[in-house]
């Protein structure tokens, strides 16, 4: 499998504090790879290292087969980067930003730029400082897509955008992968967006990799059932079943999340002779919340984490 991005034992320290810890991650080419994790997990740190803004403390990171430690700028010729808050050059107009990028990137595609410009209807002659956040993100995306990228790094770019702009943004990303086989490495808190678009998901927690797998595999690894027990059946019989990760009672109806094989879990619950047993769709958000809760990061328990890296 061709890899667009890879990290090997990647570490990053800030003032003695570890923001990334021995991170080993592989991102297959021509896929949308979602990176999730709570605030301070190290997502932005990783993005900045990959984008060439930060240097790793130790370990290695490769983008399109080349080490990020390379001093040459050519390593980023086909890599687009859209940060959470695109700063760009406030005194430049949108047209001048395109002009600048066309001079910095050897594979700049004016046709694609004009097409995206028309699509987003951005104010061509307006200064960057006068754009709304949504427009600035769109300019940043136009810049990233017009370099004929093979890899795009998105660092929570849709945070704070209205649903219309966010939908248009996601549409452009999905089209990019479908039509041009570009790899998207996408860090976000918006799990709904990822669920609809991502092929792979990885999660960071306190600088460590919690898991990395395809979205399908991840969703197959957990199952959610709605169960109604008979009055004489004690609740504990259900919650004590092996593989139960979470149980939420609502009267005699329980919403149970299991880890493991679907049929096996289904059979185990059926042995309790429930009055109602049905599988419910398990969202990525459910999976994320359970995994975070397991590590003590939840609304009930209060969050625990470094809270510095992102």
């Amino acid at each position: 499998m061709e890899l667009a991005l890879q990290t090997r034992n990647l570490d990053k320290f800030y003032d003695g504090q570890k923001a990334l810890n021995n991170l080993c991650l592989s991102v297959p080419a021509a896929t949308i790879f979602g990176l999730i994790g709570p605030n301070g997990a190290g997502k932005s740190t990783l993005m900045k290292i990959l984008a060439g803004i930060s240097r790793p403390s130790s370990g290695e990171a490769f983008i399109l087969g080349r080490s990020v430690r390379e001093k040459s700028g050519s390593i980023r010729e086909r890599v687009g980067y859209v940060p959470d808050v695109p700063v760009l050059y406030p005194s430049f107009t949108v047209a001048e930003m395109y002009n600048l990028a066309s001079r910095l990137y050897p594979h700049w595609d004016w046709e694609r730029c004009r097409e995206l410009q028309r699509q987003y209807d951005l104010p061509y002659g307006q200064r960057i400082r006068n754009l709304s956040r949504g427009q600035a993100v769109q300019v940043s995306l136009v810049l990233a897509l017009s370099i004929r990228p093979r890899l795009i790094l998105l660092d929570e770019p849709t945070a704070g955008l209205d649903p219309v702009v966010r939908r248009a943004f996601m549409q452009s990303i999905i089209e990019e992968v479908a039509e041009r086989q570009t790899t998207i490495f996408y860090s976000t808190h918006n799990l709904n967006d990822l669920e609809q678009s991502a092929d792979y998901i990885a999660s960071l927690w306190q600088g460590n990799l919690l898991f990395s797998s395809s979205l399908d595999q991840l969703k197959e690894s957990m199952h959610k059932f709605r169960v109604m027990l008979a009055d004489d059946m004690p609740e504990q019989r259900l919650t004590d079943l092996p593989g139960v990760m979470e149980s939420q009672p609502k009267g005699r109806v329980y919403t149970i999340i299991f880890q493991g094989d679907l049929n096996h879990n289904y059979q185990k619950v059926q042995e309790l002779k429930p009055l109602l047993l049905e599988e419910v769709d398990l969202s990525l958000e459910d999976i994320f919340l359970i995994l975070m809760k397991e590590r003590g990061y939840s609304y009930e328990h209060g969050k625990s984490g470094p809270g510095t890296a992102d």
């Binding site: 900045k48 984008a51 060439g52 803004i53 001093k71 040459s72 700028g73 050519s74 980023r76 010729e77 890599v79 980067y81 940060p83 808050v85 695109p86 700063v87 760009l88 050059y89 406030p90 990028a101 910095l104 990137y105 050897p106 370099i147």
Partner: peptide, 17 residues
């Protein structure tokens, strides 16, 4: 340092340039 340097560092030019 307000942030545009981050943009520049992430483009296809190196820091020496």
């Amino acid at each position: 340092r307000g942030g545009s340097l981050n943009y520049l560092a992430s483009t296809a030019v190196n820091r020496r340039q």
